[in-house]
Amino acid sequence: MSYRDKAEQLHAELEKHPGTEDLRKEIKAVLVRPEHGPTLRDRLREFAAQHPKLAGALQGLIDELNAAGL
């Protein structure tokens, strides 16, 4: 599964969680502009620390971003 697929999967998952609009916007942004990658990775790590239940999905995207060189 590519980082793109992971990002879309996580985006869909986050839609069920209120208060994630900004993060979802950043996920969309990285699909268009790779330079958003490092910022998104930092945000995902912060978010994972605050939301342990989502940590697995968040870490999955972080791994895929790393693999894609983002």
Partner: peptide
């Protein structure tokens, strides 16, 4: 392009 960004200097 748009798959393996490690080959691109964008940051």
């Amino acid at each position: 392009f748009d798959r393996q960004w490690q080959y691109y200097r964008y940051g």
